[in-house]
Nucleic acid binder design. Structure first.
Lengths: 235, 235, 235, 235
DNA sequence: CATGAATGAGCTTTCATTCAT
DNA sequence: CATGAATGAAAGCTCATTCAT
């Protein structure tokens, strides 16, 4: 987005480098400390996303990280400490992705479509994001509330939408008085729910919500819904 | 709703009677087997909703039911068997509540508002419904797919909405070609997400989403959104 | 002692019966629940006495009891709960032994000798008593303070000594104004220390304090000391 | 004591200086190796005295010393090696304190009182001494027996008492034939037990044995007891 | 001289479940 | 119909110690 500076924070799991770490086994010392830590964080993200907090045992994680249980305590202090860092990293990556969005406020309709497209796409491609959030909500946000860094990652999406709503209103295409937070929640809710409840929904709807056409259809429906909600004269 | 017969199925956890057995202790024989079973089912619903499947231990449940572990196996065979019955009971109650909705298809706008109001209200008053569904989705629907009775409780809500959409289209107030499933998902998603992600959202939005005014505001926004989506000339 | 009723409380580890429990292995169901519990309590007494609280692992205990770790938690809830019961049982047995003492208040000198003899003998024959007390004192009495039954076992020895001191004073052989608590502590201290610090003492004294003659010598010295302290005209 | 040369050995934990190094952090090189070593030894003394050998973990010690685990192995080889040095240091300090006692053999009664006063005071002011000795006795003296320097610190107290007993006997105020070791043990036992078993005793006696008046009363009782034991005509 | 990284074995405790009456 | 007793496996975590620079 033109109006926002782009400086994605460093992220462990986002880093793709990793040099010489192919097929390393515990016991060999070739790997750097940072690599071990990153491996654990990455593995924990997957395991917690897949099995939840209780179901995601430290053994599952250490095995997935090709390390040993003990290292989790060495680097993260406790299972909870590790989970908190997983959440922080998850938010950081989401933040970075939002910051990387390039939008033109002078074209509010197209840009709003772009935001929706981004959100639908991000949730679809990062299913971990959804299950991790669900897990944290099951625990009533107790872990993220312990994070000191969590506040730093307050989603820029709402600010972006506010900008677009104001621009659109100025141009006379959007209704005035729209609350950015509401529009943000509308987009997030529809994109989130579709992925979050996929399994129970398909048990009753009898459809495969993962099919590309199904996803595209839902994305278009969201776009229609949002535009009809904010525009004065929807197409 | 006028067009649907009302025959709520028997539900363990919906039953509120059972007063005579207050202060009963395990070990006394006075309580009927049905009561012990019901106590466990009710307790399990709460515990699973609160702690998830892995976090909801057999011991937590038996203690909450003022019974002993052994009884869970006596009545439900296994922890998984109990969880499946909890899910079935949860769906049954949702079904019953939807069936109890009285709507007039000749007034599609008011009725659609009524549906939204019902969904928002139900999710708000039955937070267990949300966390149980999330838990089951974390497990990719593996438990509900094992249920033989699950299919019986396919939500009548979509059928209701289809009826209203058709009636509104006939009357010339609703756009034609609207897909009932999409509208249903839109309503469910917005109502669900608001409750489901309450804890993580409030950590960043800094607002109390539980406040009655906040809930009312969100309900009104959903109504506006849905009506602007389906109506030809929204108010 | 003539003036005290004799009704030793039931004690797990004091019971010698144990019927059919010879050579039982875990896995066979022949043993009664009470036997398993008793075995654990008895084994825990030995292990805690030998290795201390931290050093006395639940595995050591369960093996010594020819049972498994899990049963400790089944019957005692936690390692700490088990240790508390060990302490209670230890006090109960000491109590019972003191109650079984038969003394004649009309012969205060002989009876006082009898008390000393008993204490020296009891400490010598029950080294567990000493190390368990040391362990509990290392923990600043935190476990025994959690015991509800602990108060019931307040040592009758002081009351006995008070009786003897009063009788002796009446007869004109003991100094008047002697405090029973002081005399009790004097006896306990000398008998206790000799056993408690045996190992470090013998490292420096270069003597075997366990030798029967050494014990007899020390007992006689205590008797001399106590009598010279309380008697008007010591022999 | 006049008759004994005064040459207190160097003691790590007795040194109180070290002021310039306040607020030093591990990682900075400004501190001398000797300081790090001393910090560990001092910290270990406290931790072992408080938690026992098993309970006194390497981590607790290194944290208390504001150092890291690795340094313990660097300087002391092992946890056991550290504990042995703690014991040696403890004995050395006791030795030094005894050597610093100034007594006049020509006044045996007053000097004996002085010895008792010293012992009672030392135990009272150095509770670590007691719990460390108890811990070592729990381990049956296995650590101190591995110490090569331990023998060097054989308590001079017995020799002192022997001197006083002989002097008193010569003067006709003390009974002849008294064994110095017995008198020493009597004093040590009474002073030791009072502190060692403070916590369990107060649980039953219901008194605060730490109160200055209580300590003074006990010291006086010990003095009376010892004098009545050794004197021909006690006051 | 000093230290960050790593580790295997052990710790207490909890898990869901079955045995046996 | 109901239950006390028992259990193997696994959980999260801490232990003293060594590696490698």
């Amino acid at each position: 987005m033109a109006t926002l500076s782009r400086q994605p924070a460093a992220s462990a799991t986002a880093r793709v480098s990793d040099k010489k770490s192919a097929a390393r086994r515990p016991g060999t010392r070739e790997q750097s400390a940072q690599t071990t830590r990153d491996n654990i964080l990455r593995a924990a993200t997957k395991v917690f996303a897949r099995y939840g907090y209780e179901g995601g045992s430290v053994e599952k994680i250490s095995q997935a990280a090709k390390s040993v249980d003990r290292m989790i305590y060495y680097y993260f202090g406790s299972k909870e400490g590790l989970f908190i860092e997983v959440l922080e990293d998850m938010y950081r990556r989401m933040n970075d992705a939002e910051l990387a969005l390039v939008l033109d406020p002078e074209q509010p309709v197209a840009s709003l479509k772009g935001v929706i497209d981004f959100v639908v796409s991000y949730y679809s491609k990062n299913p971990e994001f959804i299950t991790l959030l669900n897990t944290e909500n099951l625990h009533r946000g107790k872990h993220i509330s312990k994070s000191k860094r969590a506040r730093d990652y307050s989603s820029p999406a709402i600010a972006i939408i506010r900008l677009l709503l104001e621009s659109g209103a100025r141009q006379g295409v959007f209704r005035s008085g729209m609350v950015a937070r509401d529009v943000y929640l509308l987009i997030a809710a529809t994109a989130y729910f579709y992925n979050s409840n996929r399994h129970t929904l398909s048990a009753f709807l009898g459809e495969d919500l993962k099919a590309p056409e199904a996803i595209a259809h839902w994305r278009d429906f969201i776009i229609t819904t949002v535009l009809r909600t904010v525009m004065i004269k929807p197409p």
